[in-house]
């Protein structure tokens, strides 16, 4: 498995939208592993100011506007930066990951694939990886994307990781 492409970036708080990367593979491969990681998934600390700001954004929402401070902070602890990853090969969907893992692998081969991915007899042509960004909690959220491809069959670990 060789690294074909590596990139990364930084997201601002509040960004919603897609970032896509397109990779033209030089030849036909048996397997591919797309690794995506990001940091700052949850608030590291919740200050009174942050809780107050969230409360202000809840005005007019009956379910939340009367929440106690404790309830508000609890709800904020459950908030997360949420990014989906979607992969197409030659404009055909081959996988999507909804599960919010801060490190995730999308492994494609004939026999073994990660959850959310569709087995592929071979890997070739144009791979497009789209990061669908639903929510970014914190400024300076860093992400990294790596695309590796290889000729040998891979095995997939339970956590989605893989080895040759």
């Amino acid at each position: 498995m060789e690294l074909v492409y590596e990139t990364g970036g930084t997201l601002r708080q509040g960004f919603v939208g897609q970032i896509s990367y397109t990779v033209c593979l030089d030849r036909v491969y048996d397997a591919m592993d797309i690794e995506f990681t990001f940091d700052k998934q949850h608030y590291l600390e919740i200050t009174k100011e942050m809780a107050e700001k969230t409360r202000m954004s809840c005005i007019g929402i009956p379910e939340y506007e009367h929440a106690s401070d404790e309830e508000m902070i609890d709800a904020m602890r459950g908030m997360k930066t949420e990014i989906h990853t979607i992969v197409t090969m030659n404009d055909t969907f081959i996988g999507g990951i909804h599960k919010q893992l801060a490190t995730r692998h999308m492994v494609f081969s004939k026999d073994d694939t990660s959850d959310g991915c569709i087995p592929q007899d071979s890997i070739s042509g144009v791979i497009k990886v789209t990061l669908a960004v639903f929510n970014v909690l914190l400024d300076g959220t860093n992400y990294c994307l790596k695309l590796s491809a290889g000729d040998q069959e891979k095995q997939v670990f339970a956590d989605g990781g893989a080895y040759v």
Partner: peptide
Amino acid sequence: TDHNTISGHR
């Protein structure tokens, strides 16, 4: 009806 994937169909 998985979220944003049809990988379970097959």
